[in-house]
Nucleic acid binder design. Structure first.
Lengths: 154, 154
DNA sequence: TCTCATGAAACTTCATATGTTGCGAGATGG
DNA sequence: CCATCTCGCAACATATGAAGTTTCATGAGA
């Protein structure tokens, strides 16, 4: 099962937008991510509905960040994406009549719940500003540019 | 994405086998699980290779448990299944040249690793015997039978 | 020998993230 | 007003992998 990379992708886009002075078009962002503009719009739709980003049509239009990076966590972004499934494995049946399966579900289900809660808790502890700060730390350590296009060679 | 239920399924099968005096055929197990005998054989193949179960052909053949239930954990079973993916989400790119994506990957990757380790640790703490004990506790509380067929109405 | 059972390979089905195309609507600049 | 740029949305194509199915071969027991 190919892993869902929407959260990873949209965070990447957001941090790039944060480095841009003006709006970024879906097309520019898509080229940088080696994907399609429509994919970018799909990712951003949920964030726009929640007011984390803004979109403008026409000349000079595109996407702009519309929130305080330190006030938005990865969990907020995750929920804006529609809370995609976190775990790749699960119980075979939700409410089985079989007592054996109930025992299996109880043990596995509790473990699954713990793992999901851990993920959500960690997401809630990381703000976009922290990611941005980490990026800038890496940048000054390397001493490179922040040009969106050139950095995407690999 | 439909969740992978192989671990759930194979545990269900194992606990039913543990209640059976003799061998259980793939066909019988498949009917109880509302699935196909081939699916059962696929699930069991990895466990057979590790010696957790045994298979016999011909009349009176089928699957038998060949291990001490208290010595085998859910983690052992998970590994016998080939260590399927645990998380449904992941990073977009494994080793990105882009520093922004590196920062995103670092934060997400650490969180993902924690969640995976939590799952594996918990799996390692639960033995098949514990699941079986939980089943028997549920059984005596309900006072029903352990007939494999009748319990699978729902 | 006939029947029962597993073993293995090759398919089909299904769900879903991802990629793509096309058209409409709104905004900007000439 | 018109051309161009941009997003919004719907519809379709692609790829992956679990689950389900079919078929044949193999070995064991009656």
């Amino acid at each position: 099962m190919r892993r869902d990379s929407r959260l990873s992708g949209v965070l990447h886009v957001l941090l790039h937008m944060a480095e841009q002075p003006g709006p970024s078009t879906s097309d520019t962002l898509a080229r940088a991510m080696n994907t399609n503009p429509v994919v970018i719009r799909r990712l951003m739709a949920g964030l726009r509905d929640r007011g984390y980003v803004q979109s403008e049509k026409g000349h000079g239009g595109g996407w702009t960040i519309a929130c305080d990076l330190s006030a938005v966590t990865l969990r907020d972004i995750y929920e804006a994406l529609g809370r995609p499934e976190l775990l790749a494995i699960g119980n075979r049946t939700d409410e089985p009549g079989c007592l054996v399966e109930q025992a299996v579900n109880a043990a596995l289900g509790q473990t699954f719940d713990e793992a999901e809660m851990l993920l959500l808790r960690r997401f809630g502890e990381i703000s976009l500003a922290m990611l941005s700060a980490d990026f800038h730390a890496r940048l000054s350590k390397r001493g490179g540019s922040i040009a969106l296009e050139t950095d995407h060679a690999a």
